[in-house]
Structure formats: C-alpha cells, structure tokens
Computed example of a mutant assay.
Amino acid sequence: MIQYPSTDIRTLAITAPSSGVDKELHPLLEQTISRQQENGFEVKIGKTAWTQENAKSAPAKERAHELMEMLNDSTVDAIIPPWGGELLIEILEYLDFSNISPKWILGYSDTSLLLLTITLNTGIATAHGTNIIDLRGPEKDETTAKWIDVLTTEKGGEVIQESSAFHQKSWDHQNPSPMVFHLTEETEWKTVSGKPLKFEGRLLGGCIDVIHHLAGTPYGDVKSFREKHIPGESVVWYLENCEMSVADLKRSLTQMKYAGWFDNCAGILFGRSAANHPTEGYTAEKMYMDFEAESGIPLIYDVDCGHMPPQITFVNGALAEVEVKEGKGRVTQKFI
C-alpha cells in the first residue's frame, strides 16, 4: 500500500539536501520566496539553502538533520529544494526512514535520488517535477503549473497531464522569460516503432545518472518495496539522462536490469536529454531500439521529464496509465 501525503498545502519548506545557492545567486532564491508568498504560501527556509561549498550545501550530517527536522515539522506541508546538485547520496546513511512523516517532497535531478529512496524504503509517495528556483517567474507554463494540482489530488482521486506544446532547448539564466524557461522547440513524444503505445503500472524513477547508484545497496531494494507495498503489480519507470554518454546510459540500464529493477516492468519513459552524446556512432535512438528488443519492454522517449523543461509531475508509487499517439502524450495518475 502506498501512503499519500496530505493535500492541504499551505506551508512550503526549502532545504538543500544536495546543492545550496551560491551567494551571488541569492537574488534567485529571494525571488522564488517572494513569488510563493504572493501565491499564498507561507515559506520556511533552512540554513542549507543559502550556502554552497565543495559541491554541496553543507556537510552530510547537517543536510540530513535539517531535512529530518522539516520532514517531522507538523507546520510544513511540502518540501521543495532549490534545485538538485551532485552529492545527495552522502546523506542517506543519516536519514531515519522509520521516523519520516508523510509529506510531499518535490524536485528533480539529484533530488530524485532522495525521492526514490524515500518511496522505496517507506512506501510514501514522492513527486518528481519542478524545483522551486524555477517557480520564481510571474508566469507559469501549463505543464509546470500542474505541480500543485498533482500534489492536491486527494487519495483515491486521479489527475491527468498532457504533453507540453513546446519545450526548452537550452538554459539562458541571464535572460529568463516571464515563465523562466524559453519554450521554443516543438514537443514530440516518440516510440521505437513510431506507432501509438499505451501501458499502465506503478511509477518509479528519476535521474538515471544518480539513481542507478542505489542498485545493490540497502537504499535501492526495489524487490522488497514491491513485495511489501505493491505486490503483484507492474511498474512503469520514468528516467532522464543529465550528463551521460549513450554508452554510459546503456551500462547503467544494464546494471539496473541485472539488479532486477525492470522485472515485471510494463514500460519505460525516457525524458528529453541534451546529453545522450553518441558513442562511436551509437546514438540514443539506436540504444532505445536495442534495449526494447533485448528486454521486451516498450519504450517512450523525449517525454516531458528532466533537464529540458517543462516537466510533467510524476508521483513515485502512483498508478499511472501512459499513452502516446501522433507525438502527443497523456499521463493519468491514480492515487490508490
């Protein structure tokens, strides 16, 4: 059984379990705090959000302590880190998974390591989507704006999200648009066969660069999670590549396969990626074709997930029906 956090979201907390915000970028954090207050939220902010040194906001124990405090603060309804980073994995050994109160955590990139770990080790649903720095603009695109609709969907309810019309090719932090992103490229969800595709299962996933490191550790026991929380049900994995070459991506997928993560898998979603650099002519498209043939698992790629915004909000543990037809996608999530 999956535990879904409360949908009464009034107070947001910002902590940095991975990277904090350098001093010269504090105006971005101040903007997003003000924006959320304008949107009617109360905002609590931890010390780690304001600091960054040696590729992390603070030593691992400090990051873990602040996160645990916010997780168990009854006045906090949702936790959204400023962004991802590099070394979130360091804090896992200092988290008390037996003492985590169900509440929403939202984010992506390195934050997805935390999201997946919490869901696997507690059965508490977590949300993969926008980070809070990207919510600082006066406007929001339709895809990003759905984050609050997803997090306020009642247990037993469902929420539908459509693929975006346009997405961002590259970041231009010096010239943000009113919605922060520059959505200039037409979005097209794709399948290996080029034909329509539809599948259903419990969602699990994140940034493959970091989550594949959980395989074979106590924090990435997918088999035990499935037996305890979703016995007999299939899984839909959503994955996105931040920095890997195609060969590195294939190695990581193969490692996950060897670890049993893709057992009883109904389908895999791959997010758009500005990485996916070919290895000796081996492209991402060829790799997707190979992996689908080898595993027998249907694939959809170039979906709205990851480092080329905007992003659909995927809830780890939710039952999802995913379909694509003529380049357009739809994700229906049921909180059961």
Rank of each mutant, 00 (worst) to 15 (best):
V235K: 03
Q52T: 05
V322N: 07
H307L: 15
P298N: 03
P309V: 10
F181R: 01
I105K: 00
N54K: 10
T332H: 01
E90Y: 08
F166P: 00
R35P: 08
Q31V: 10
K47A: 14
D96G: 04
A259T: 08
V43P: 02
I336G: 11
R202S: 11
I14R: 01
S295V: 11
G232V: 02
L135T: 08
I33A: 07
T122G: 10
N121I: 09
T15W: 02
E162T: 02
L114R: 01
I100Y: 12
W83K: 06
D221I: 07
A259N: 07
G156Q: 04
L214D: 06
R63T: 08
E53T: 06
K155V: 14
E42W: 00
V235G: 07
M1C: 10
H128T: 15
I89P: 03
T75S: 15
A320K: 08
T11W: 01
G201F: 14
I100H: 13
E227H: 05
S163F: 09
V43E: 06
C305K: 01
P82Q: 02
E185G: 00
D77N: 14
L114H: 05
T48S: 10
K195W: 08
H213G: 06
E280S: 11
I105E: 09
N99M: 05
T11A: 08
L71W: 06
E69A: 10
E186G: 05
I89K: 09
E326I: 00
A125W: 07
G46K: 01
T117K: 09
E233D: 13
H229C: 15
L88I: 15
L67R: 02
G201N: 12
E243Q: 07
T184G: 00
E326G: 00
W50D: 03
E53W: 00
T111I: 15
M289K: 14
Q168E: 15
V210C: 09
S19I: 01
R272L: 11
G84I: 00
H229P: 01
E154N: 06
R251V: 07
D22S: 09
G317I: 04
T15I: 13
K328C: 07
N54G: 05
S224Q: 09
